[in-house]
Computed example of a mutant assay.
Amino acid sequence: MNIENISQYIRSVELQRDRISNFSEYPFCLSAVNNLFKLKFHPNVTFIVGENGTGKSTILEAIATVYGFNPEGGTKNFTFSTKDTHSDLHNYIKLTKGIKKPQDGFFLRAESFYNLATNIDELDKDGQGRKIIDFYGGCSLHEQSHGESFLALFLNKFKGKGIYILDEPEAALSPTRQMAMLARLHDLVKEGSQFIIATHSPIIISYPNSIIYEIKDGFNQVQYEQTEHYQVMRDFLNNTSKMLDILMD
């Protein structure tokens, strides 16, 4: 199957390797970056999975930054910066875009979502007219649990025909809420949206109309049941007592 479609919002990302002088320096030493050549994205949903520290978040951050999003998250209209910690990888990647422009978009970083919520409250306190929080459900994201605020984002802010780049969206979601997120993701896909998601969740990566890239000495396109996340969770649930005995021996 040819996963690339000229009408999708982001078709591929390519590392401009000839411009990099030293692959032993950060962020080029990260496994995901070191092994990045050209990665094609699914028109609907692309998952990137792998162990902590491989560089998934660094790549998503670079993609989002090149596309015009704030490195700390939000829409293209957010410009807040609490701490300049993003890498300069965005200076070394090339995005190939499709012929259509999205009508909506968002970059979700689980680790900096608190800062995004704070910025919204500050802008609404100083602004006039319709409040920004109205687009997120009307209730301050700080006045909800972490999981409720994440779900409010998916249900209220994401409008369809958009590009949504999500870094570990499961961080604040219970398994039940992750399934609710899957249902919302499917609705948005049917409304012409594209997702690029880095995740550890075996629930979220079960979405069928997608491709999964697993980082293991490079990017490997795998089926759901082939992912380490699925296999580890399956084995643990099917052999809980035995696994606990091994872990606690």
Rank of each mutant, 00 (worst) to 15 (best):
F69G: 02
G147S: 10
E51F: 06
N70K: 10
A183R: 14
S145H: 07
D104Q: 03
G147V: 10
S87V: 10
L116H: 05
K125W: 13
C139R: 14
P71A: 12
T65D: 02
H142A: 10
Q103A: 06
S57R: 00
T85C: 00
G127A: 15
D121W: 09
A171V: 10
I120E: 11
E72M: 14
G98R: 03
K76Y: 01
A183F: 11
N77S: 15
S57C: 04
H146P: 00
D124E: 08
K100H: 11
I59F: 01
S174K: 02
F158V: 04
Y114K: 15
F80M: 04
K161V: 08
K101D: 14
E61R: 14
M181L: 15
G105R: 05
L89Y: 04
L116S: 00
R109L: 11
T54E: 04
G160M: 09
S145N: 07
F158K: 01
T54I: 14
G50P: 12
F107W: 04
P169G: 13
R184L: 04
F154I: 12
I120F: 09
S149F: 00
G68E: 04
T79L: 04
E122M: 14
Q144W: 06
H90I: 03
M181Y: 11
G98N: 08
C139P: 00
G127V: 08
K131N: 04
I132N: 08
H186G: 07
I165T: 08
T118A: 07
A62N: 01
K97L: 15
C139E: 15
D167F: 02
F78T: 14
E72A: 03
D121P: 13
A171G: 03
K56N: 06
L95P: 11
E170C: 07
K97V: 13
K161S: 14
N119I: 00
